[in-house]
Simulated scan of single mutants.
Amino acid sequence: MPTVLLLGAAVLVLLVALVLLVKGRSVRRSAASFRDRAVTATATVVGLEAKDLSLGAEPDTRYFPRVSYVPAGAAEPVEAQTLTDVPAPPPRVGDTLEVAYDPEHHDRVDVLATEDRVEGAGRTWFVLASLTALVAVGIAAAWLLLVFIVWTS
């Protein structure tokens, strides 16, 4: 019975890792698709949101500008939060930025300076998938340990 439980748990955790990997690929494809159809515009920074990301002792502050821009063919400006942070140093309110926006969804805006960072899209999902796969391998290793040391004695 412990064999079925341990191996079943390892397979289940491995399936979760696979789902996380597929989600990461989906996010990366979505980011690449956004870049393929994005239209560039000049936007004005109307606000700046600071987010502290910390994995260790020191927080890493990232800045996400809120921008106002006029999409192609529109008369009214659109205000939106950027999807990615801006490179340091962050812009000030009133500064202009080159942005890329989705012509179908004007609230999807990205800072043009981050255009080459599509490879970072989905990274969190890939890390979670790797860690989950490691847990699955750990469960399988525990099963092997029990088989060779405990149950064969």
Rank of each mutant, 00 (worst) to 15 (best):
V150A: 14
Y69R: 03
L146A: 10
R28E: 14
L53N: 12
F126M: 11
S68W: 01
Y101P: 04
P103W: 07
D60V: 08
V67G: 01
D85Q: 05
G8M: 09
R66L: 13
T3A: 15
A133D: 06
F148N: 12
L144V: 10
V93D: 10
L15C: 08
H105C: 00
T124N: 12
E98W: 05
V93R: 12
V78I: 11
V111N: 08
E58N: 12
K23A: 14
P87G: 15
R66C: 00
A80Y: 01
V111G: 01
A38S: 14
L12W: 07
L53H: 14
R92F: 05
K51D: 09
P89Y: 11
D95E: 11
V78N: 01
F64C: 01
E115R: 14
L131H: 11
L20N: 01
V22T: 08
A57T: 14
T114C: 00
L144D: 09
F148I: 09
G24W: 06
E58Q: 14
P87C: 04
L21Q: 12
S54V: 06
T40F: 06
L53A: 14
I149E: 15
A32D: 13
A133T: 05
K51P: 00
T82Y: 00
E98K: 14
V150H: 12
V150W: 15
T61C: 00
H105M: 03
L83S: 07
A100S: 12
D107W: 07
L134E: 05
W151D: 09
A140Q: 06
G94R: 08
V99N: 00
F34N: 02
A80P: 02
A136W: 02
A17E: 02
R92N: 11
A100C: 04
P91A: 03
L97T: 05
S153G: 15
P87F: 15
M1S: 12
L55D: 13
T132N: 04
V45P: 07
T132I: 05
L83Y: 05
D95L: 03
V78T: 15
P71L: 01
G122H: 06
T44F: 02
R28Y: 11
A50K: 09
V27D: 08
T44R: 15
F64M: 03
A72F: 09
F148E: 13
A41W: 08
R66T: 13
A17H: 05
A100R: 15
V78Q: 08
G122K: 04
E49C: 01
A50H: 00
A142E: 07
A10W: 05
V11T: 12
A129Y: 08
P87V: 10
L18K: 02
A100T: 07
D60Y: 10
S54D: 09
V19K: 07
S33N: 11
V118R: 05
P103C: 09
V67E: 04
F126S: 08
H106A: 13
V111T: 04
G138A: 15
S33D: 14
